[in-house]
Measured scan of single mutants.
Amino acid sequence: GAPPLPPYSAGGREVTMKKGDILTLLNSTNKDWWKVEVNDRQGFVPAAYVKKLDSGTGKELVLALYDYQEK
């Protein structure tokens, strides 16, 4: 199953993602919540729920390892 959710501390809205989604990583300075862009929406997802990909394009991409439903 998915890892436990860290307390929400990102101070911005969250976004929903599905397992297998490829998201653009915008900011990973917060260790628990990373800012991503998905379907032209920006928001935060739990860092433990995604994995960085080596895209080779200069853009940082992450793979959704679990479904996440915004609150």
Results as ranks from 00 to 15, higher is better:
1 G>C: 12
1 G>H: 13
2 A>S: 10
3 P>M: 06
3 P>Y: 05
4 P>K: 08
4 P>A: 11
6 P>T: 02
6 P>V: 02
6 P>E: 03
8 Y>A: 09
9 S>Y: 09
10 A>L: 13
11 G>S: 12
11 G>C: 14
11 G>F: 04
12 G>D: 07
13 R>S: 11
13 R>L: 13
14 E>D: 13
14 E>T: 15
16 T>I: 06
16 T>M: 07
17 M>F: 10
17 M>S: 00
17 M>T: 03
17 M>C: 05
18 K>P: 01
18 K>G: 04
18 K>R: 14
18 K>F: 10
18 K>Q: 07
18 K>L: 07
19 K>D: 02
19 K>Y: 04
19 K>T: 06
20 G>N: 05
20 G>E: 01
21 D>M: 15
21 D>F: 04
21 D>R: 03
22 I>W: 03
23 L>V: 05
24 T>E: 09
24 T>V: 15
24 T>S: 10
25 L>F: 03
25 L>W: 01
25 L>Q: 01
26 L>S: 02
26 L>Q: 03
26 L>N: 03
26 L>C: 05
27 N>I: 07
28 S>Y: 07
28 S>H: 08
29 T>F: 09
29 T>E: 15
29 T>I: 08
30 N>A: 07
32 D>I: 08
32 D>S: 07
33 W>R: 01
33 W>S: 01
35 K>A: 07
35 K>T: 08
35 K>F: 15
36 V>P: 00
37 E>N: 05
37 E>A: 11
37 E>P: 01
38 V>P: 00
39 N>G: 15
39 N>A: 13
39 N>V: 12
39 N>Y: 13
41 R>W: 06
41 R>G: 11
41 R>P: 00
42 Q>L: 06
42 Q>Y: 07
43 G>S: 03
43 G>K: 02
44 F>C: 07
44 F>Y: 14
46 P>H: 01
46 P>Q: 01
46 P>V: 02
46 P>C: 03
48 A>V: 11
49 Y>A: 04
50 V>R: 00
50 V>W: 00
51 K>W: 07
52 K>P: 09
52 K>N: 06
52 K>L: 13
54 D>A: 11
54 D>G: 14
54 D>T: 12
55 S>T: 15
56 G>D: 15
56 G>I: 14
56 G>L: 14
57 T>C: 10
57 T>E: 15
57 T>S: 15
58 G>L: 11
59 K>Q: 14
59 K>R: 13
59 K>E: 12
59 K>Y: 11
59 K>V: 14
60 E>H: 11
61 L>T: 10
61 L>A: 06
62 V>I: 06
62 V>W: 05
62 V>A: 14
63 L>K: 06
63 L>C: 06
65 L>S: 02
65 L>R: 03
66 Y>H: 07
67 D>A: 05
67 D>T: 06
67 D>M: 03
68 Y>P: 00
68 Y>R: 02
69 Q>N: 15
71 K>N: 14
71 K>Q: 15
71 K>A: 13
